[in-house]
Amino acid sequence: MNTKRFLTTYGPMFGIWILIVLLFGVLSDNFLTTRTFLTIAGQVPPLVIICCGMTLILIIGGIDLSVGSVLALSASLLCVALARWELALPVAAFLAIFAGFLMGAFNGAISVLLKIPSFVVTLGTLKIAFGLAMLVTASETVPVGTTLEPLAQRISGIGLPVSFLVAIVFVILFQVILSKTVYGRYLVAIGTNEKAVQLAGIPTNLRKISVYAITGALVGVASIFFAARLGAANADAGNGLELSAIAAVVIGGTSLTGGRGSVVNSFVGAMIILTLDSGLAQIGAAEFAKHMVTGIVIVVAVLLDALRGDFLQTLKNRFRKTA
């Protein structure tokens, strides 16, 4: 990718984020402080790690509504495994990730093989995972003690939490997977024109299922950071997270109809959502206003995406005219 294309791909999103940051900086005296950014940085990891997978799912033209309650299930398993079953951290972490993986694989297999819209399948999984989380926790909040604290700690010198850096690593890793591996390019191709991919003799089902499974596993990873920050888990953990994740990915410009998207931009999309949240809180906006502003930002983002499609079509028609 040349510099120009790099800038046009990632520049606008970063620009918008910086504008929002500056806007709140002007509106509130206390916004441009280390404390604000550390709060945001602390919230970033679970959401951003999930966004890595959600971006891929939207790119292949699917959606996953179950990530929030799968996170609750994984986090619950993790905390129960550590606190009640007294398992070692690696074993507990594996359980959490594996549970996420299984739920994701279930989503993928049912929706791809049985050709059922992922919207409906994952809506079902949302309830299933929620129920399982209640079962695992016996509907209680399970405190995890001090085992996970190191993850939420800040690295001396940089000041950022370990978890934030891990999230950044995931973003880079998944952006590379998406744009630099054959697997990633096939996902883009499938989301753009699956039939053409199949005609080229490339099987698509397994690849599509794998995207859901990977996302599930990522949710498992995210659950570890989630539990680390709160020091506990219950079945209500991650409530509404699916919507934040989808919103972040969409704000980041990933097309809801598939074929186009970027993990880095989803990351910035997540930053925008979290910044709005904390900025609005700081300028003393009422709870209702926070919800409405976030909602408006999502609608505007989708609108921009739709207009972009129209714009391209117009260009193409014009080309056809001259042809």
């Binding site: 390019r185 883009v188 191709a189 989301g191 753009t192 024109n193 039939k195 053409a196 991919v197 005609l199 080229a200 074929g259 186009r260």
Partner: peptide, 9 residues
């Protein structure tokens, strides 16, 4: 006749 070009690649 209908092209199979994948536009996002």
């Amino acid at each position: 006749q209908e092209l199979n070009v994948i536009e996002n690649l």
